[in-house]
Design a binder for these strands. Structure first.
Lengths: 345, 345
DNA sequence: CTGAAAGCGCTTACAG
DNA sequence: CTGAAAGCGCTTACAG
């Protein structure tokens, strides 16, 4: 048996359609659509209305999403493009997004890019196919010009990162913090504790790059030599590897290590402990993000309000999806960092 | 300006369509479709073919997903329904799914239910709307009969949990482990270490329920009194709350606490440490899942191969989506647990 | 070989 | 007030 009938139509017949309901009740398919979508249908006799709703319920009718989207040009879906859903920081952002979007009637889908160029390109294509009404994008590789097409399609976007200096392309809002200054502040804190050999571990792409700039600037200003350890991926294992390579330096090893995010810092902590070092007396550790585990481990870090960021992004998108929302000026949310001192440094 | 033209058609004109390409090149829209979708089109002159591809590239053409889905009855999307993406166990499953699905040409979307009945119902509706070609479902509340509609729609599903005793509904595959026995084994381990007052902390719904059964059975067999602390949600904070309530019992407090998952156990660890207790001498802690942080914290736990489970599910779905795949018999993956002893117990 | 037409399942302006 | 028709953007069997 083929999956298609003689005219090349796919067999959709397994799921009930408005046509099926209409046939069962003896009305037009359009009448079914009216009844199912409007709270009141003065043009349909209330007896007929009741029968339509009854049959729809019995058949377990649900509208075919693709058909509805094609006709109405709305998906009722917001997308969240994240580099790594296993990083609790991004997971927190997604939860904030979802918690705010659900009451407004929007589903939230998560698209994972792995923080790799190919993954981000796939996400871009996915968005260009019209699969969401709005997107919260956390991209490491794509440049502002890569979003030109989506902006021309009038897809509301909230992007993590600073708006480019040039004219702002509507309808895009931005959320960012001063990563350079936050990392600088943390570096100053470590220097203030008496550390002179301070290393930073980070990944090649993502916000760690700007954080490294702040770290390097402060180190040089203090007459100290910056030491970067760069890995391809952000994971506890990468943090372990980085710390192990630093420990291999023997007496010249750093006395403090600053992870560009908590996931890396936590891995580094583990490697230091496994090597028999005491934290912070033998080795101080600092991170960035303040993920839930950071509190547990006593990790000194930079707090970022993940849930609140997601909630803000959801509100911004929902505003833009209201009538006239596309013409609103671009808005920025610049949030402030907060250093959380714990025992690790 | 309205979002709709005079005939009620939504303005899609911002994005280029095959019609636009056809008009620019001077061919039929159908010819454009052929060229864009087939590697070879003997019926189209190669010169015309080149011009179509060139114009499509210049316009940044991407097919409208809803239109393609409506016509072809395929979404090229797999869905992953998870109770809590912030739980690293589920995040690991999703990554396994994604890593296997991407090379086969499938996008993976994540639908978060919060482990609540309403969220699961929303996911069910979402699936009934035909938004994915297959689904990996981790449901806490829905019963097998709730999936009858989807099975009738021939939606391939991989469900976490044991198949119900009755006839298996195609096309559903199951993956499960013996939660009762795994929890029993961990409880025996704790008893073997000399503990007599062992509490278990869990959430009202989810796999913890079956784990509690194993725990309770072993406790009773050993002549010990089971002690359950039940919270609504699974989070480190819930684990903190549970431990605090146990510590409030003073001298009658347990000497070991078994978390129904690592997230709860990690919260309990934190609360015990914050109360000045040494682990494991004052308080032993055990968990379930072996999330990445468990290793860092030295948590004794039950390992589950999250990534591999996701990969298996992806393979099962992809098999079913091949011609004839819907008729394959239902398959089960029963995986074996492994107790990982670390310092916490 | 080539192109026009049908139709997937919906929503909604418009003609009777 | 009521229902039939148009059309969203595609894919594909089929008529010329």
């Amino acid at each position: 048996m083929s999956d298609h009938d003689a005219t090349g139509r796919p067999r959709h017949s397994v799921r009930p359609t408005q046509k099926d309901i209409a046939a069962a009740v003896g009305v037009s398919q359009a009448a079914v659509s009216m009844v199912l979508n409007k709270a009141e249908t003065p043009s349909v006799p209330s007896e007929t209305r009741k029968r339509i709703l009854k049959v729809a319920g019995e058949l377990g009718y649900q509208p075919h999403h693709a058909a509805r989207t094609l006709r109405s040009a709305r998906t009722l879906t917001l997308a969240s493009v994240v580099p790594d859903i296993t990083n609790p920081f991004y997971a927190g952002v997604v939860r904030g997004l979802q918690t705010t979007a659900a009451p407004a009637g929007y589903d939230v889908l998560i698209y994972n890019t792995d923080g790799r160029p190919e993954g981000e390109q796939r996400a871009l294509k996915w968005l260009q196919q019209g699969r969401a009404d709005g997107v919260v994008g956390m991209f490491y590789h794509l440049r502002p010009s890569d979003f030109g097409t989506l902006a021309r399609y009038k897809l509301p976007m909230v992007l993590f990162g600073q708006p480019s200096g040039k004219r702002t392309v509507l309808p895009v809002d931005y959320m960012f913090m001063d990563n350079v200054e936050a990392a600088a502040a943390m570096t100053r804190l470590l220097i203030g504790k008496g550390h002179r050999r301070i290393a930073m571990i980070l990944t090649e792409f993502g916000p760690g790059r700007r954080r490294a700039i702040g770290y390097q600037a402060v180190m040089r200003d203090a007459g100290l030599e910056p030491r970067l350890v760069i890995d391809q991926t952000s994971s506890p294992e990468a943090g372990v590897r980085a710390m192990e390579s630093l420990l291999a330096e023997g007496d010249a090893r750093p006395t403090a290590v600053f992870g560009a995010n908590d996931v890396l810092a936590i891995g580094a902590m583990r490697a230091a402990r496994d090597a028999g070092l005491s934290i912070p007396s033998d080795m101080a550790i600092a991170g960035f993000d303040d993920v839930p585990t950071a509190g547990l481990l006593g990790l000194t870090t930079v707090r970022q309000p993940d849930f609140e960021l997601g909630a803000w992004a959801a509100k911004a998108l929902i505003e833009r999806l209201k009538p006239g929302g596309l013409e609103l000026p671009s808005r920025n949310l610049e949030w402030t960092f907060e250093i959380v001192e714990r025992i690790s440094a």
